[in-house]
Design a protein around this nucleic acid. Structure first.
Length: 551
RNA sequence: GGGCCCAUAGCUCAGCUGGAUAGAGCAACGGAUUUCUAAUCCGUCGGUCGCAGGUUCAAAUCCUGCUGGGCUCGCCA
């Protein structure tokens, strides 16, 4: 399906043959030409001008003769200052469009499976409380990226790393105990750094109601262990539910405790020792990570004998590698930026391939209400939980708004706009556009202008107006753009593509009549409508949003 | 102070593998409706692409320095 650039590049490279050298060949790549034309262009002549000591235009004219014969091309011409413009042939365009019809949205952009497994780890918030709105951006980016990578033929697993071991977990347990113990006639002090959120007494109550009498009979240590287990289970259930309400699900919930209890830390520590990259100091075990690009050495085992997060993180990624993934793509919030350099050093010191770990850091989200930034604090009572946000604005709106800017940029999330049923709302605009397309198709079906009518080939040369051509261009470039978005790991681009297509569809719809007397023109435009519908659905599949057939 | 991210229209942001005239949404103003969804569309206004160098036939895009903003620098996770 729609693999324009690949097809054109292949044909061009064959056509050029001996005219260019092996070193020059990689420069012969086409790109979409500038707005206003439905052409692809080669800037190759300008790149060759220096080494060939010739004017770019002269080279263009020379090569143009060879390129002119490629199958997908109609008119090919050399233009100043040195481009070769390739106008696609009508039959090629028609074939490309037709190839999309009837293909399931979930596989429309799908390339052949390459058998490689990629793991995308995202959200991974500590199981010590409900998800915060900030986690929503990671959820959206991670889940869309995962689907996007599937289009490239990877087998993708979505994974949530559950940090259910270590001091944070202990603090969490003791915070619950502080509220729960009095119900048992006991006491437990709130730790200094304890969790003070309103949900903590709530958890204590639920756990007490469920097994208060059992807890009473236990010894202190077992009692705390039971509370930890219950607290973790309850919180994870709420996290899972919040994510599901946002349309995000995981293949694996990977427990940190599992790593510790099943010897993965010991295994990795032994590897470090074997490689001679650790040393003892002040009663702790250190990794000489500065040898691998880190700015300071890291403690692996604390003086008290407990493993650090660093050691377990090394074990975790080693475990991922052992599970056969060619890549671990980790999506983190900007507050984890400091982990990236140490993590890279960890990968190196374990001898894992340099490209095994990819990290996507997303910048912070500012929420807007009434044109004012919402100050997220537990005191003001403003929404802070992801679940509340999703319930307020809706699943699709939340997903779309979290994708409104590149992960590298900060994001403004306007709650009022997200809730609006207006076309200022990008989520709503997509839905409206899709419903409109469906309506046209319904109308056309009603008068027999879809099924058998579309069996005759469409004459795309009849698509001449700027609206026809603008829409056509949006359709033809879709796969190439999706491939770029996947390669550069930029899920937000899919939203921009979908929005751009929607805009073209509406401009086209407004200006050009689809259903009309001239059956050849009707057929050509109907093809645009049908393909637009397929592509919008395919984008929606990647974005994880639903589109209604009528509104 | 070190590391990473950002700086593009009044506001919020896109901008691919350097490539032809830098785009969208919102805001402002002006238009279009015997219509397949007007819940729409079109037009106008608006830009020294933070600053200064460099590389290149060609730089918003690559490199260096600077300025401003964000995140971050624990034997926490």
């Amino acid at each position: 399906m729609l693999n324009l650039r690949e097809t054109i590049d292949r044909q061009v490279s064959l056509a050029l043959g001996d005219l260019i050298s092996a070193e020059e060949a990689p420069l012969a790549l086409c790109s979409l030409s500038h707005p206003g034309f439905l052409d692809y262009t080669l800037s190759l002549p300008m790149k060759l001008a220096r080494t060939r000591h010739k004017a770019p235009l002269a080279i263009a004219q020379e090569l143009q003769l060879a390129v002119a014969h490629i199958a997908c091309a109609g008119l090919v011409e050399a233009v100043a200052p040195g481009y070769i413009n390739i106008q696609l042939s009508d039959s090629f365009v028609a074939n490309q469009l037709t190839s999309v019809l009837g293909v399931e949205p979930a596989v429309l952009f799908q390339k052949d499976a390459n058998g490689q497994k990629i793991e995308v780890e995202f959200v991974s918030a500590n199981p010590t409380g409900p998800l915060h709105v900030g986690n929503g951006r990671g959820a959206a980016l991670g889940s869309v990226l995962a689907t996007l990578l599937e289009t490239q033929g990877y087998h993708v697993d979505r994974e949530y790393y559950v940090n259910d071991y270590g001091s944070k977990m202990k603090l969490f347990t003791e915070s619950i105990a502080h509220y729960l113990f009095p119900m048992l006639g006991l006491e437990h002090p709130m730790p200094d750094e304890g969790y003070r959120g309103a949900y903590v007494p709530g958890l204590a109550q639920v756990i007490y109601d469920r097994e208060g009498s059992h807890l009473r009979s236990l010894r202190e240590e077992q009692r705390l262990a039971a509370i930890e287990e219950d607290g973790k289970t309850l919180v994870l259930a709420s996290i899972r539910q919040s994510l599901e309400e946002m349309g995000v699900s995981f293949d694996t919930w990977f427990s940190e405790r599992y790593l510790v209890e099943n010897g993965w830390n010991d295994r990795v520590l032994q590897q470090f020792r074997d490689r001679g990259v650790v040393y003892d100091r002040d009663g702790a075990v250190w990794l000489r990570s500065t040898d691998f690009g880190d700015d300071k050495d890291r403690v692996l085992v604390r003086r008290d004998g407990e493993p650090t997060y660093t050691l377990t993180d090394a074990a975790y990624h080693f475990n991922k590698f052992q599970r056969g993934y060619v890549k671990s793509i980790d999506v983190f919030g900007a507050d984890h930026i400091g982990h990236v350099v140490p993590m890279r050093a960890l990968m190196k010191s374990l001898g894992l391939p340099d490209d095994f770990l990819e990290v996507i850091i997303y910048q912070i989200v500012h929420f807007l209400r009434g044109g004012q930034r919402v100050v997220l604090s537990k005191q003001t009572g403003e929404i802070i939980e992801l679940a509340d946000l999703v319930r307020e604005v809706g699943k699709d709106q939340a997903r779309v708004f979290f994708l409104l800017s590149s992960a590298d940029s900060e994001l403004e999330f306007d709650l009022e706009v997200a809730k609006e049923n207006s076309l200022d709302n990008p989520a709503y605009y997509l839905k409206y556009t899709y419903a409109r397309l469906c309506s046209v198709i319904r109308q056309a079906s009603g008068i027999g202008a879809v099924g058998p009518f579309m069996a005759s080939p469409a004459d795309v040369s009849r698509l001449k107006t700027s609206e026809d051509r603008e829409l056509l261009k949006c359709l033809l470039k879709a796969q190439d753009e999706v491939d770029d978005a996947a390669r550069t790991r930029q899920p937000h681009r899919i939203l921009y593509l979908a929005s751009e297509l929607a805009k073209s569809v509406n401009a086209f719809y407004q200006k050009e009549k689809v259903i009309q007397e001239d059956s050849n023109l009707a057929r050509a435009r109907m093809l645009l409508v049908l393909v637009s519908q397929c592509l919008l659905q395919a984008y929606a599949h990647v974005l994880g949003v639903t589109l209604p057939e009528s509104m």
